[in-house]
Nucleic acid binder design. Sequence first.
DNA 1: AAGCCTCACAACCGCAATAAT
DNA 2: AATTATTGCGGTTGTGAGGCT
Length: 238
Amino acid sequence: MGRKPCCDKLGVKKGPWSAEEDKMLVDFILTNGQCCWRAVPKLAGLLRCGKSCRLRWTNYLRPDLKRGLLNDDEEQLVIDLHARLGNRWSKIAARLPGRTDNEIKNHWNTHIKKKLLKMGIDPLTHEPLNKQLGSLGSASESGDDQPPATGKVAHHTATESSSQQSEAPTTVDSLLDDDFPLVGSPWPSSEADGGSSGMPAWDGESEADWLLDYHQLSVLEFGLENLFGGDVNPPLTY
DNA sequence: AAGCCTCACAACCGCAATAAT
DNA sequence: AATTATTGCGGTTGTGAGGCT
């Protein structure tokens, strides 16, 4: 038996959100908090599915979101994190306060990917493209746990004209252990998770969770009462 | 001015993971 | 333990704005 759709297709609105819908959703979450996304549309009086509400909130209406393009430091951090985490955008986003996985993913696909390709770096492996053709071969490919830092070196070169690390709010090395697996390096053996998915159980998760908690704490400190006010960029410009 | 192209970003879709029964 | 419901994630698409020819 197949799964039911996440929401009734009939009577569910799709497409861009109106200012009124946004207000209804924000009002509801401010009053009731985030829970039970499936019930949100009904309770908030929205003709949307819960999934759509959650996406709208997390990607656009959340009060702690930054706006605008990623700056050089953030971009560097994304590249470094991507080298370690791969396309796990939510994990990457958790280390960039005020940024969403969607935003980072978009920026990666529209900017960083092209930038790296232009520099001759494979955005997937973070290694020089010509190395993959077998012409370089300086670093050992063997499965030593020590990550070959080729990607990182190359990326720092990419932004060497910018502020390097001096003004960076955080560096990836300060956030992550070297134990964290690199893309392209073998993941921990799959016995832990049954080996069926591409997402192995990862012992470094606990640290990731700590960082996530840190981020969430900062969000809490920000306070919902600041929603749409003060320093926060208004979520809507209709 | 019109048409085309690129960019930026919002939103949807399908799947996997997890929780609940 | 198996099944079902819900949430979260990543890939992809759609669309409006702005620049260029």
